[in-house]
Amino acid sequence: EPVVLRYNQWFPTGHWSQTEGLYPWFAEIEAATEGRVKVEPSAKPIAPPNRNYQAVVDGVADLAWGPHGYTPGVFPLTEMVELPFITEDAGKSSVAFWRLWENFFAPTGMQGDVVTLAMHVTSGGNIHMRETGVESLADLKAQKIRVPTPTVGRVLKDVGAVPVSGSLGELREMLSRGIIDGTAISDELVTGFKVEQYVKHVTRIPGGLYSNAAFVIVNKAKWEKISEADRAAILKLSGETLSEKMGALWHKHDLIAREAIKAELGDAYRDASPAFLAELKAAFQPAEVAWLEQAAKLGIDGGGALNFYRAELARSGGN
């Protein structure tokens, strides 16, 4: 009798993160355990994306993948890897993130109610605009920009832009109808959600304006039902290996998207100038300070963690 892990399928089944990332990993698990462990995706979401974590804790789903940021406030520590200018190559960043998790975050008891099989990041966000190019903070003034995180929203508001919130589901509607003038978003999401025809200008922010942290987690009781040997076999396919695999997949598709958008836009796809970048860095400075304070409150050495993460990235050439 095989152990069947029910996977909460809330993301589109045709997306590469599923077809090239998780589904092949599910197949590897089945092969490595000789069919004693199977993963079965649900036909539609069993729990909404912001309840991924709770669903696995409560046994509603056995296995879930999802961004930490969908439940704001619950995973304050991961906000560090979502800081701007830090995610150049999501694959390398994900290796660093996994090690950071093992050394600094896991010991705090974070995600203690579940078994964590991967921690990865997604590609950094750029500035995508409908009509006008953005080359300085002043260009953002009075522009309606959809923002993915409160941090980006706060900074944009400070510089006179109009931050607009809205789900990814509404992105197409908002962009195509001009409800927003632009959005902070990664290139791969723009092509992934097929809204590239509404984007006429892109300003690439090296290292990203933000990024998303994500987990792969399994229900504890279900995990205990798997034999020790099979658990070891699954762990071998997971952890740093799976984290890197997911991150690298993001980087690969981000580069593909970048080339596709560049081919379409030509010079209208630009890198942020050093002057613009300096302006942005100054504007985002308080975000890093805020995270360090938050980390201190949770009893971890924030400065040490940040240095560890940066050193890992420097070692792998990830930033």
Binding site: I46, A47, P48, R51, Q54, A55, D58, G59, V60
Partner: peptide, 10 residues
């Protein structure tokens, strides 16, 4: 029963 009830809450 636990997971079933949890889904009511969610």
């Amino acid at each position: 029963i636990g997971p079933a009830l949890s889904q009511i809450g969610i």
